[in-house]
Structure formats: C-alpha cells, structure tokens
C-alpha cells in the first residue's frame, strides 16, 4: 500500500503537525520505504489468529475508590506556557476541533 502526498498531508493534520513541503515529500519517501518492509505482513494469512493487545494474560487491574492528595496548584501550573488566575491560557479556539 503506497502512501500518497495527500495521505501524508491528511495524516499530518490528524497528528497536528505543520509540515513544510520538503518534509511532506521526504516523509512520503521514508514512510513508503518503511511500509514497503512492513507490507510483508499483508501476505500472512492470519484470519484465524486472535490479535494480542497485551502480551500477558492479566485482567481486572483496578484501584479502590479512595481519594488521594492532589498536586498543589503551583505544581500543576509549574510548566504552563501561559497561566492566569490559576488556569491555563490558550489562544482563540477557532478551528480547534470538537468536544466529547
């Protein structure tokens, strides 16, 4: 499966990466080279094989409903690029996407 230039641009938008034209073109080449190797998997008949998401058969790992200490607000905002009144500040939302 070859990846086209428009595929690269679409994927870059999904991944929120502003690529230069030069990056788009070199990534198209590199990704196709990597995918060319990976495509050997397409040839395998794995119809009857179950997919593995977790290598070990562990289930039901949960925590009790217990409150633990939070971060101080000072620490929560320690690395904030911009903060105001205890909140993180971001620019206008236009075109940001969607909600839940």
């Amino acid at each position: 499966m070859a990846i086209s230039e428009s595929d690269v641009r679409h994927v870059a938008l999904l991944a929120r990466l502003a690529l230069t034209d030069g990056q788009v073109s070199s990534l198209q080449t590199e990704l196709n080279s990597i995918l060319g190797h990976i495509d050997e998997l397409q040839g395998l008949d794995l119809a009857d094989v179950q997919p593995t998401a977790h290598a070990l058969e562990v289930t039901n790992s949960m925590r009790p409903d217990v409150v633990k200490p939070c971060l101080s607000r000072e620490l929560a905002l320690r690395n904030a690029p911009e903060a105001e009144g205890g909140a993180f500040v971001i620019p206008a939302m236009a075109g940001a996407g969607e909600d839940v």
Partner: peptide, 17 residues
C-alpha cells in the same frame, strides 16, 4: 509552544512540528 499562534489549531500544528 510557539509564541505567535493565531489560534489553537495553529498552536498545536506549529508547536508540535
């Protein structure tokens, strides 16, 4: 974070790139 983002999408795209 880029310091001249026009909006959030622009901020995401260029800060990450």
């Amino acid at each position: 974070r880029v310091d001249d983002a026009t909006d959030v999408l622009d901020l995401y795209m260029r800060s990450r790139a």
